[in-house]
Simulated assay, not measured.
Amino acid sequence: MKRWLGKTEVVLGNHSDRLNAINIFPVADGDTGTNLYLTARAAVSALAGTSPDATETGNDVGALLSRAGQAAMEQARGNSGTLFAVFLCAAAEPLAGKSRLSAPLLATALNRAQIRAWSALSDPVSGTMLSVLEAAARAAQAVDSAQGGDDSNHSLGLALDAVVEAALQAVIRTENELAPLHEAHVVDAGGVGMLLVLDCLRSAVLGEELQDELLEGLHGYRLQDPHIHEHMPADDGVEVMCTINLSPLAAATLRQRLDEMGDSVIMSQVGSTASLDDDESEGETSYRWRVHVHVPDPEPAVALIRSLGDPTDIAVSQLALPREAGGETADHEDSGTTAGQPRHEL
Protein backbone atom coordinates (compact mmCIF):
# COMPACT_ATOMS: atom_id res chain seq x y z
CA MET A 1 0.00 0.00 0.00
CA LYS A 2 2.81 2.43 0.85
CA ARG A 3 4.60 1.58 -2.39
CA TRP A 4 1.38 2.12 -4.36
CA LEU A 5 0.62 5.49 -2.79
CA GLY A 6 4.21 6.66 -3.16
CA LYS A 7 4.23 5.67 -6.81
CA THR A 8 0.85 7.37 -7.28
CA GLU A 9 2.16 10.64 -5.85
CA VAL A 10 5.15 10.63 -8.21
CA VAL A 11 3.15 9.65 -11.29
CA LEU A 12 0.39 12.20 -10.68
CA GLY A 13 3.02 14.86 -10.13
CA ASN A 14 4.75 13.95 -13.38
CA HIS A 15 1.45 13.96 -15.28
CA SER A 16 -0.13 16.98 -13.59
CA ASP A 17 0.55 19.32 -16.50
CA ARG A 18 -1.01 16.98 -19.09
CA LEU A 19 -4.02 16.34 -16.84
CA ASN A 20 -4.43 20.08 -16.33
CA ALA A 21 -4.16 20.61 -20.09
CA ILE A 22 -7.29 18.57 -20.88
CA ASN A 23 -9.33 19.55 -17.82
CA ILE A 24 -12.54 21.19 -19.04
CA PHE A 25 -15.28 19.34 -17.09
CA PRO A 26 -17.12 20.21 -14.90
CA VAL A 27 -15.18 23.50 -15.00
CA ALA A 28 -12.50 24.44 -17.52
CA ASP A 29 -10.09 25.54 -14.79
CA GLY A 30 -7.10 23.40 -15.71
CA ASP A 31 -6.33 22.10 -12.21
CA THR A 32 -7.37 18.44 -12.12
CA GLY A 33 -3.77 17.19 -12.28
CA THR A 34 -2.64 19.58 -9.58
CA ASN A 35 -5.54 18.71 -7.30
CA LEU A 36 -5.01 14.97 -7.67
CA TYR A 37 -1.28 15.33 -7.03
CA LEU A 38 -1.70 17.47 -3.91
CA THR A 39 -4.34 15.14 -2.49
CA ALA A 40 -2.13 12.10 -3.12
CA ARG A 41 0.75 13.94 -1.49
CA ALA A 42 -1.36 14.44 1.64
CA ALA A 43 -2.07 10.70 1.75
CA VAL A 44 1.61 9.82 1.42
CA SER A 45 2.68 12.41 3.99
CA ALA A 46 0.41 10.77 6.55
CA LEU A 47 2.47 7.60 6.24
CA ALA A 48 5.89 9.24 6.16
CA GLY A 49 8.47 7.55 8.34
CA THR A 50 6.22 4.63 9.27
CA SER A 51 6.93 0.94 8.88
CA PRO A 52 4.88 -2.15 9.74
CA ASP A 53 6.67 -2.35 13.09
CA ALA A 54 6.60 1.37 13.85
CA THR A 55 2.99 2.35 13.23
CA GLU A 56 -0.26 1.58 14.99
CA THR A 57 -1.57 0.13 11.73
CA GLY A 58 0.72 -2.88 12.19
CA ASN A 59 0.42 -5.25 9.25
CA ASP A 60 -3.18 -4.20 8.62
CA VAL A 61 -3.63 -3.17 4.98
CA GLY A 62 -7.00 -1.56 5.63
CA ALA A 63 -5.83 0.42 8.65
CA LEU A 64 -2.90 1.85 6.75
CA LEU A 65 -5.02 2.77 3.73
CA SER A 66 -7.68 4.29 6.00
CA ARG A 67 -5.06 6.46 7.67
CA ALA A 68 -3.85 7.68 4.29
CA GLY A 69 -7.38 8.18 3.01
CA GLN A 70 -8.51 10.26 5.97
CA ALA A 71 -5.47 12.52 5.62
CA ALA A 72 -6.25 12.88 1.92
CA MET A 73 -9.89 13.70 2.71
CA GLU A 74 -8.95 16.39 5.23
CA GLN A 75 -6.68 18.07 2.66
CA ALA A 76 -8.52 17.14 -0.55
CA ARG A 77 -8.37 19.65 -3.40
CA GLY A 78 -11.13 20.16 -5.94
CA ASN A 79 -13.64 17.70 -7.36
CA SER A 80 -11.01 15.22 -8.48
CA GLY A 81 -9.00 15.28 -5.27
CA THR A 82 -12.11 14.87 -3.14
CA LEU A 83 -13.29 11.87 -5.18
CA PHE A 84 -9.81 10.34 -5.01
CA ALA A 85 -9.91 10.67 -1.22
CA VAL A 86 -13.39 9.11 -1.17
CA PHE A 87 -11.98 6.25 -3.23
CA LEU A 88 -9.15 5.62 -0.73
CA CYS A 89 -11.37 5.78 2.35
CA ALA A 90 -14.04 3.51 0.90
CA ALA A 91 -11.56 0.97 -0.48
CA ALA A 92 -9.95 0.72 2.95
CA GLU A 93 -13.11 -0.50 4.67
CA PRO A 94 -13.26 -4.09 3.32
CA LEU A 95 -9.49 -4.40 3.81
CA ALA A 96 -9.65 -3.77 7.56
CA GLY A 97 -7.77 -6.46 9.47
CA LYS A 98 -6.26 -7.97 6.30
CA SER A 99 -2.52 -8.41 5.85
CA ARG A 100 -2.52 -8.72 2.05
CA LEU A 101 -4.58 -7.87 -0.99
CA SER A 102 -6.35 -10.61 -2.96
CA ALA A 103 -8.63 -10.74 -5.99
CA PRO A 104 -11.82 -11.10 -3.89
CA LEU A 105 -10.77 -8.23 -1.64
CA LEU A 106 -9.85 -6.07 -4.62
CA ALA A 107 -13.27 -6.65 -6.16
CA THR A 108 -15.03 -5.79 -2.91
CA ALA A 109 -12.87 -2.71 -2.29
CA LEU A 110 -13.34 -1.29 -5.78
CA ASN A 111 -17.08 -1.92 -5.66
CA ARG A 112 -17.35 -0.17 -2.30
CA ALA A 113 -15.29 2.73 -3.65
CA GLN A 114 -17.35 3.23 -6.80
CA ILE A 115 -20.62 3.15 -4.87
CA ARG A 116 -19.32 5.66 -2.34
CA ALA A 117 -17.93 7.94 -5.05
CA TRP A 118 -21.21 8.00 -6.99
CA SER A 119 -23.19 8.69 -3.82
CA ALA A 120 -20.86 11.47 -2.63
CA LEU A 121 -21.94 13.68 -5.53
CA SER A 122 -25.37 15.28 -5.53
CA ASP A 123 -25.43 15.18 -9.32
CA PRO A 124 -23.09 12.40 -10.52
CA VAL A 125 -22.27 12.36 -14.22
CA SER A 126 -21.16 9.53 -16.49
CA GLY A 127 -18.10 10.04 -18.64
CA THR A 128 -15.95 11.04 -15.68
CA MET A 129 -13.66 9.32 -13.19
CA LEU A 130 -16.84 7.84 -11.70
CA SER A 131 -17.38 5.82 -14.88
CA VAL A 132 -13.75 4.72 -14.92
CA LEU A 133 -13.94 3.52 -11.33
CA GLU A 134 -17.22 1.73 -12.01
CA ALA A 135 -15.73 -0.09 -15.02
CA ALA A 136 -12.71 -1.11 -12.97
CA ALA A 137 -14.93 -2.49 -10.21
CA ARG A 138 -16.99 -4.53 -12.65
CA ALA A 139 -13.85 -5.98 -14.23
CA ALA A 140 -12.50 -7.03 -10.84
CA GLN A 141 -15.81 -8.67 -9.95
CA ALA A 142 -15.88 -10.53 -13.26
CA VAL A 143 -12.41 -11.99 -12.71
CA ASP A 144 -13.19 -12.90 -9.11
CA SER A 145 -16.36 -14.67 -10.22
CA ALA A 146 -14.56 -16.53 -13.01
CA GLN A 147 -11.84 -17.62 -10.59
CA GLY A 148 -14.35 -18.80 -8.00
CA GLY A 149 -13.11 -16.49 -5.27
CA ASP A 150 -9.53 -17.76 -5.52
CA ASP A 151 -7.28 -15.60 -3.32
CA SER A 152 -3.98 -16.61 -4.93
CA ASN A 153 -1.45 -14.13 -6.28
CA HIS A 154 -2.16 -15.48 -9.76
CA SER A 155 -5.84 -14.48 -9.54
CA LEU A 156 -4.86 -11.11 -8.14
CA GLY A 157 -2.61 -10.53 -11.14
CA LEU A 158 -5.42 -11.44 -13.53
CA ALA A 159 -7.77 -9.09 -11.70
CA LEU A 160 -5.33 -6.17 -11.78
CA ASP A 161 -4.69 -6.66 -15.49
CA ALA A 162 -8.43 -6.65 -16.14
CA VAL A 163 -9.00 -3.62 -13.92
CA VAL A 164 -6.44 -1.48 -15.78
CA GLU A 165 -7.69 -2.57 -19.21
CA ALA A 166 -11.30 -1.82 -18.24
CA ALA A 167 -10.27 1.57 -16.88
CA LEU A 168 -8.47 2.38 -20.13
CA GLN A 169 -11.49 1.52 -22.24
CA ALA A 170 -13.70 3.59 -19.95
CA VAL A 171 -11.35 6.57 -20.33
CA ILE A 172 -11.52 6.28 -24.11
CA ARG A 173 -15.33 6.23 -23.95
CA THR A 174 -15.50 9.45 -21.92
CA GLU A 175 -14.85 11.52 -25.02
CA ASN A 176 -18.19 10.50 -26.49
CA GLU A 177 -20.12 10.42 -23.22
CA LEU A 178 -19.82 14.12 -22.43
CA ALA A 179 -20.65 16.81 -24.99
CA PRO A 180 -17.92 19.26 -23.83
CA LEU A 181 -15.27 16.56 -24.17
CA HIS A 182 -16.56 15.47 -27.57
CA GLU A 183 -16.55 19.03 -28.83
CA ALA A 184 -13.00 19.63 -27.57
CA HIS A 185 -11.85 16.21 -28.80
CA VAL A 186 -10.30 15.14 -25.48
CA VAL A 187 -10.84 12.45 -22.87
CA ASP A 188 -11.77 13.23 -19.28
CA ALA A 189 -8.87 14.43 -17.14
CA GLY A 190 -10.16 12.89 -13.92
CA GLY A 191 -10.71 9.59 -15.71
CA VAL A 192 -7.11 9.55 -16.90
CA GLY A 193 -6.00 10.34 -13.37
CA MET A 194 -7.92 7.32 -12.04
CA LEU A 195 -6.38 5.15 -14.78
CA LEU A 196 -2.92 6.24 -13.62
CA VAL A 197 -3.82 5.46 -9.99
CA LEU A 198 -5.00 1.95 -10.89
CA ASP A 199 -1.94 1.26 -13.06
CA CYS A 200 0.23 2.35 -10.13
CA LEU A 201 -1.60 -0.23 -7.98
CA ARG A 202 -0.95 -2.93 -10.55
CA SER A 203 2.70 -1.94 -10.81
CA ALA A 204 3.23 -1.85 -7.04
CA VAL A 205 1.52 -5.19 -6.35
CA LEU A 206 2.96 -7.15 -9.27
CA GLY A 207 6.39 -5.55 -9.20
CA GLU A 208 6.12 -4.58 -12.87
CA GLU A 209 6.78 -1.34 -14.72
CA LEU A 210 4.03 1.16 -15.38
CA GLN A 211 2.33 0.69 -18.73
CA ASP A 212 3.16 4.00 -20.39
CA GLU A 213 1.68 2.77 -23.64
CA LEU A 214 -1.78 3.08 -22.06
CA LEU A 215 -1.65 6.80 -22.69
CA GLU A 216 -0.73 6.57 -26.34
CA GLY A 217 -3.53 7.78 -28.53
CA LEU A 218 -5.56 9.44 -25.77
CA HIS A 219 -6.84 12.59 -27.39
CA GLY A 220 -5.26 15.78 -26.05
CA TYR A 221 -2.56 13.93 -24.12
CA ARG A 222 0.50 14.49 -26.31
CA LEU A 223 3.16 16.77 -24.84
CA GLN A 224 2.86 19.15 -27.75
CA ASP A 225 -0.90 19.54 -27.33
CA PRO A 226 -1.93 22.93 -25.90
CA HIS A 227 -3.89 23.56 -22.73
CA ILE A 228 -7.31 23.57 -24.37
CA HIS A 229 -9.03 25.55 -21.62
CA GLU A 230 -6.86 28.64 -22.10
CA HIS A 231 -9.06 30.15 -24.81
CA MET A 232 -12.38 29.07 -23.34
CA PRO A 233 -14.70 31.55 -21.59
CA ALA A 234 -13.79 32.02 -17.95
CA ASP A 235 -16.04 30.29 -15.42
CA ASP A 236 -17.54 32.64 -12.87
CA GLY A 237 -17.83 31.77 -9.22
CA VAL A 238 -15.76 30.09 -6.57
CA GLU A 239 -15.08 26.70 -5.05
CA VAL A 240 -15.80 26.38 -1.33
CA MET A 241 -14.41 23.48 0.70
CA CYS A 242 -14.36 22.69 4.41
CA THR A 243 -14.58 19.95 7.01
CA ILE A 244 -17.40 19.92 9.55
CA ASN A 245 -19.05 17.71 12.17
CA LEU A 246 -22.76 17.24 11.45
CA SER A 247 -25.59 14.94 12.39
CA PRO A 248 -27.05 12.91 9.51
CA LEU A 249 -30.07 15.22 9.42
CA ALA A 250 -27.95 18.37 9.38
CA ALA A 251 -25.75 16.88 6.66
CA ALA A 252 -28.80 16.14 4.52
CA THR A 253 -30.04 19.69 5.09
CA LEU A 254 -26.68 21.14 4.12
CA ARG A 255 -26.51 19.08 0.94
CA GLN A 256 -30.02 20.15 -0.09
CA ARG A 257 -29.33 23.84 0.55
CA LEU A 258 -25.97 23.73 -1.25
CA ASP A 259 -27.66 22.07 -4.23
CA GLU A 260 -29.98 25.07 -4.37
CA MET A 261 -27.09 27.56 -4.14
CA GLY A 262 -24.64 26.03 -6.60
CA ASP A 263 -23.39 22.85 -8.22
CA SER A 264 -20.64 20.21 -8.05
CA VAL A 265 -21.75 19.43 -4.51
CA ILE A 266 -19.70 16.66 -2.91
CA MET A 267 -20.25 15.53 0.68
CA SER A 268 -18.43 12.53 2.04
CA GLN A 269 -17.91 11.23 5.53
CA VAL A 270 -14.39 11.45 6.92
CA GLY A 271 -13.80 8.19 8.76
CA SER A 272 -16.55 6.03 10.19
CA THR A 273 -16.47 7.03 13.84
CA ALA A 274 -19.44 8.87 15.29
CA SER A 275 -19.10 11.42 18.07
CA LEU A 276 -21.60 12.70 20.61
CA ASP A 277 -22.12 16.46 20.44
CA ASP A 278 -23.29 18.07 23.66
CA ASP A 279 -26.02 20.68 23.55
CA GLU A 280 -28.29 22.22 26.16
CA SER A 281 -30.63 19.24 26.18
CA GLU A 282 -29.01 16.01 25.13
CA GLY A 283 -26.16 14.81 22.99
CA GLU A 284 -26.65 14.15 19.27
CA THR A 285 -24.64 11.72 17.20
CA SER A 286 -22.58 13.46 14.53
CA TYR A 287 -20.03 12.52 11.89
CA ARG A 288 -17.17 14.37 10.27
CA TRP A 289 -17.82 15.47 6.68
CA ARG A 290 -15.75 16.90 3.86
CA VAL A 291 -17.80 19.45 1.91
CA HIS A 292 -17.20 20.79 -1.61
CA VAL A 293 -19.36 23.09 -3.74
CA HIS A 294 -19.12 25.58 -6.63
CA VAL A 295 -21.14 28.76 -6.00
CA PRO A 296 -21.39 32.23 -7.57
CA ASP A 297 -20.70 33.95 -4.23
CA PRO A 298 -18.96 32.32 -1.25
CA GLU A 299 -20.57 34.35 1.54
CA PRO A 300 -24.07 32.74 1.54
CA ALA A 301 -22.52 29.26 1.36
CA VAL A 302 -20.08 29.96 4.19
CA ALA A 303 -22.85 31.49 6.29
CA LEU A 304 -25.03 28.43 5.72
CA ILE A 305 -22.25 26.06 6.69
CA ARG A 306 -21.50 28.01 9.87
CA SER A 307 -25.19 28.10 10.79
CA LEU A 308 -25.19 24.30 10.98
CA GLY A 309 -21.92 23.66 12.77
CA ASP A 310 -18.35 24.71 13.44
CA PRO A 311 -16.39 24.14 10.21
CA THR A 312 -12.62 23.93 9.98
CA ASP A 313 -10.27 24.62 7.08
CA ILE A 314 -12.77 26.64 5.04
CA ALA A 315 -11.03 27.38 1.74
CA VAL A 316 -12.39 29.54 -1.07
CA SER A 317 -10.78 29.37 -4.52
CA GLN A 318 -11.59 31.23 -7.71
CA LEU A 319 -12.79 28.80 -10.39
CA ALA A 320 -11.03 30.63 -13.20
CA LEU A 321 -8.15 33.09 -13.31
CA PRO A 322 -5.74 34.20 -16.04
CA ARG A 323 -3.02 31.59 -16.56
CA GLU A 324 0.50 31.75 -17.90
CA ALA A 325 1.07 30.35 -21.36
CA GLY A 326 1.46 26.62 -21.17
CA GLY A 327 -0.25 26.42 -17.79
CA GLU A 328 1.25 25.86 -14.38
CA THR A 329 2.18 22.57 -12.79
CA ALA A 330 2.13 21.18 -9.29
CA ASP A 331 5.84 21.96 -9.01
CA HIS A 332 4.90 25.59 -8.42
CA GLU A 333 2.56 24.83 -5.51
CA ASP A 334 3.20 26.69 -2.28
CA SER A 335 1.64 26.42 1.15
CA GLY A 336 -1.31 28.66 0.36
CA THR A 337 -2.26 28.13 -3.25
CA THR A 338 -3.24 25.50 -5.72
CA ALA A 339 -1.33 26.08 -8.96
CA GLY A 340 -3.17 28.78 -10.86
CA GLN A 341 -5.72 29.28 -8.08
CA PRO A 342 -5.24 31.40 -4.94
CA ARG A 343 -6.94 29.85 -1.91
CA HIS A 344 -8.32 31.98 0.89
CA GLU A 345 -8.58 30.36 4.31
CA LEU A 346 -11.54 31.84 6.24
Rank of each mutant, 00 (worst) to 15 (best):
K2T: 06
R3M: 07
G6R: 09
D17S: 12
N20S: 06
N23C: 06
P26A: 11
A28K: 00
A40P: 01
A43N: 03
V44S: 02
A48R: 11
T55I: 09
T57A: 14
N59D: 13
D60V: 10
G69M: 13
Q75S: 15
R77A: 02
G81Y: 00
F84H: 01
E93Q: 12
P94F: 11
L101K: 00
T108V: 02
V125F: 06
A136F: 08
A137H: 03
Q141W: 01
G157D: 09
G157L: 05
A167E: 04
A170K: 01
T174M: 10
E175I: 08
E175Q: 14
L178C: 03
A179V: 10
P180V: 05
H182N: 09
H182V: 02
H182K: 13
A184D: 08
H185V: 08
V192I: 14
V197A: 13
E213Q: 12
L215S: 11
L215M: 15
G217M: 08
H219Q: 14
D225R: 09
H229F: 11
A234T: 12
S247E: 06
S247T: 15
S247W: 09
T253Q: 14
E260S: 06
D263R: 09
V270M: 15
R290T: 07
V293D: 01
P298D: 03
A303C: 08
R306W: 00
L319C: 04
R323P: 00
E328R: 13
E333M: 09
D334C: 05
T338Q: 06
Q341S: 14
H344Y: 13
